[in-house]
Computed example of a mutant assay.
Amino acid sequence: MEKITLWDDRTIPRLGFGCWAIGGPFWADAVPVGWGVVDDNESKRAIAAALDAGIKFFDTADVYGAGHSEIILGEALKGHDDIVVATKFGNQFNPDNKQITGQATDRTYIRTAVQASLKRLNRDTIDLYQLHVDDLNADAAAQAQAALEELVTEGLIRAYGWSTDHPEHAKGWLGGKNYRTVQHDLNLFTPANAMLELVNANDMISINRAPLAMGMLGGTYKIKHAFGEDDVRSGGAPWLDKMTGISSAEDAQQRLDGVRELLTVDGRTVSQGALAWIWAHNASTLPIPGFRTVKQAEKNARALEFGPLSIETMHEIDMVISGDI
């Protein structure tokens, strides 16, 4: 089983679960930014299945479902104090109407936000607290980092990271004593080499959102699948933003079909192959596929049984994705 060592010297399986989808619907004005209606009991059963499969890392955010994801995760993890919990801050929201209302990263807001997350998660300490604003100017970022170091000193969090796809921003926090992770998009269509170079050079961990390109590498949907009105994927094709260099849905489908047999080598599913590609791509990676059902949780967790793809298979996949064959 693939393993990774954390900032506090704990070693865990090299697979976490992302909890965006289990938050349920929430909105930015009229735009859906959640994954549709969810069954909270099924979400809890899925978390239990992940725990049974050995998963030790769960990533969420205060804004997912306007607080609902943290609440469900906290209830499901009651009594599991050994599990690593990561959450994020920076987006303001109204839990009553499930609306995002703005952004804030100042010291006062951070201290208020962490206390609210601790309460929803039913925890005394958050293992990893991450800035959830992709693009923040240098002065504001420095002030946020100072506040985060205070939280570590006070024991409210153990470490912090930044959820950003901009290496130039992630570099701004280097040197921070408890700055341990960068969360960014990474999948076989989006290799994120510049960010991984930064992470590797500074002995950090790369937490990988969109490892299955918002479900398009899960093997369930066709690229042109129609989603419900309360699903973030219903507005155009936002998952295409998670597939660098892909010009259209048709292009994405063609390249995915071209690697399907390679991803399923040795009996893997498509999603298990996509996760195996990430492990083979870089040793510092920790993919966090999302889930909403027990079946999804069990399938993704079983990727650990197969481990990374071979160098030969990686080369063949990369040739197809790049269009060189």
Rank of each mutant, 00 (worst) to 15 (best):
M1R: 13
I4L: 01
I4F: 02
T5A: 03
W7S: 03
P13C: 04
R14N: 01
R14L: 02
G16P: 03
A21C: 04
G24M: 10
W27N: 03
W27Q: 07
A28W: 13
G34H: 12
E42F: 10
D52V: 13
I55A: 06
K56I: 04
F57A: 01
T60E: 03
S69F: 00
E70Y: 04
A76I: 11
I83Y: 04
A86L: 04
N97H: 08
K98I: 02
Q99N: 10
Q103L: 06
T108C: 08
R120Q: 09
N122Y: 09
L128I: 00
Y129T: 10
Y129D: 01
H132E: 09
D139N: 08
A141E: 08
Q143D: 15
A144H: 03
A147H: 03
L156I: 05
G161V: 04
G172W: 07
L174N: 11
N178M: 04
T181P: 01
Q183L: 05
D185P: 13
F189M: 03
M195Y: 02
L217P: 05
L217T: 11
G218I: 07
G219V: 09
Y221G: 05
K224L: 05
K224C: 08
G236V: 13
D241Q: 15
K242D: 15
L256P: 03
V259D: 02
A274Q: 00
A276T: 12
A280F: 10
N282T: 15
S284G: 12
T285I: 09
G290C: 11
T293A: 12
T293D: 14
V294Q: 08
Q296F: 02
A297M: 07
R302K: 08
A303H: 06
E305G: 03
I311Y: 10
I311N: 14
E316N: 13
V320Q: 11
I321R: 07
